[in-house]
Structures are given as structure tokens and as C-alpha cells.
Simulated scan of single mutants.
Amino acid sequence: MQVIFSLLDLQSEKFRDKEVLEAFRESQSRVISMSLIHEELYREGEADTLDFSAYLQNLVKNLFHTYMIKSKNICLFMNLEKNAFFDMDIAVPLGMIVNELVSNSLKHAFPGQKAGEIQIKLTGEKVTDELIDDNRKHKRKDTGYTLIVSDNGVGIPENIDLENSDTLGMQLVDILVDQLDGEIEIKRDKGTEFTIRFSNI
């Protein structure tokens, strides 16, 4: 991951266009979001799941550092479920979703370095389903999670639709939510709020 990050850094030095440089920085941010997952897994030894709440704190801290100039007047509030352990199939796409949404807030929600707030909330609720398999009933226990990423900034325009967005970031969020077999809801009241619901079986 560090090699990929360095290659992107070297390649970006050949360009002066602000949009191109921003695209490289966004790609580097996505690489970092994945590399932090591997760091967390290595820290926990042989575990094949990671403490997602701890990872999320490191990820967002890194994003605020990346967008230091734009984030200096922005307060962060996090309310994260304890003992939320996810495997790679959930942690990677979910981490990238948070990366995209928080990055968007830092870049666009507070123009002119306006003061504001970004909030991240992760909650879980135990769910028991009855499944019928080969004419036999059995119960499946899982945990339904809700992730909310919100800001009190200028809000995204009404005409922006995740499924038909012309930005890579929003397209990526839509694809990754599908990958989680989850659902996403957007509210545009007094800022922007993304609510993502998914299950950890």
C-alpha cells in the first residue's frame, strides 16, 4: 500500500492542474483507508476481524490531517458502537464509504473555511431471523448496523442522485453500499446526512 501511495505521489509531481492534483490526492486517501485496515489487523495479531470503531477513529483523524487547511474550523463528533468487529468483506467497503463521505464534507460542505460540524455515528442492534432451508426452519442471529455520516454545511444539491452521479466518489459509495447488501438514505435538511444500514451475519 505504501508503494502505491508513493507511486501516486511521484506521478502527481508531473502535473500542475488543480483538478488533476485533487484526483491524485483522493486516490491516495482511498489507498490510506485500506492500508489502515491492514495495520489494525496486524496490530491484533492472528485475528481475522478488526475493531472497526478504533479503525474509524484513525481513518477520520488521518482525513482531517490530509485536509488540514479546510478542516481547521470544523469540529468532529463521533459516537461509535463498542466491540463492532468486522471482517475484511465489510471493513474495506465500509471504510472506503466513510472515507468518501467525510472527504466530501471537508471539501465541499464549508466553503470559505466556514465553521461547522461533522458527525459520525455507528450503532448495532441484534436481529434474529427465521430461515427455511430444505423444508427445515432454523434461526439465524446477526447484528444490524446503522452508520450515519452528517454535516451541518451547505448541503448537496437536490439534483445529485447517487445512482446517476457524475462524480467518482458518489458512484463509489453507491457501488460499495450494494457490495454490503445494504441500503442508503440521504437527507438534505440543515446540511447533509447519509444513513447506511447493513448486517453483520
Rank of each mutant, 00 (worst) to 15 (best):
Leu94Lys: 00
Ile175Trp: 04
Asp129Phe: 13
Gly155Met: 06
Gly116Lys: 00
Val154Leu: 06
Glu117Lys: 11
Asp166Lys: 11
Ser12Ile: 02
His108Pro: 03
Glu44Ala: 13
Tyr145Ile: 00
Ile118Gln: 00
Leu10Gln: 14
Glu130Ile: 14
Glu163Met: 02
Ser33Phe: 01
Ile160Ala: 01
Asp87Ile: 02
Ser35Leu: 03
Ala47Gly: 08
Ser6His: 15
Leu180Val: 01
Phe77Ala: 11
Lys70Gln: 14
Asn99Glu: 12
Ile118Ser: 00
Tyr55Ser: 01
Glu46Ser: 12
Arg25Gly: 05
Ile148Cys: 07
Gln28Glu: 14
Ser165Val: 03
Arg197Ile: 09
Glu117Asn: 14
Asn135Thr: 10
Phe198Cys: 01
Tyr145Ser: 01
Met78Tyr: 02
Lys139Asn: 12
Glu81Asn: 12
Met170Asp: 12
Gln28Asp: 08
Leu168Glu: 10
Val98Lys: 05
Val177Ser: 00
Ser35Lys: 15
Thr146Ser: 15
Val173Asn: 04
Ser199Tyr: 08
Asp129Met: 11
Lys137Glu: 14
Ser165Leu: 01
Val60Arg: 07
Asp142Glu: 10
Tyr42Asn: 12
Lys137Asp: 06
Leu101Gly: 06
Glu130Ser: 12
Asp48Lys: 14
Val3His: 12
Lys187Cys: 03
Asp87Gln: 08
Arg197Met: 10
Gly153Leu: 00
Leu147Gly: 07
Leu122Arg: 05
Phe77His: 12
Gln57Pro: 01
Glu117Thr: 10
Arg197Asn: 15
Asp48Leu: 09
Thr128Asp: 13
Glu40Asn: 05
Asp87Arg: 04
Asn73Cys: 02
Ala47Phe: 04
Asn152Glu: 06
Met78Leu: 06
Ser35Glu: 13
Gln113Gly: 01
Leu106Arg: 02
Phe15Val: 08
Asn79Tyr: 09
Glu13Tyr: 08
Leu63Asp: 11
Lys139His: 12
Leu8Trp: 08
Lys139Asp: 09
Glu158His: 14
Val31Thr: 11
Asn83Ser: 10
Phe198Tyr: 14
Ile74Gly: 00
Ile160Met: 07
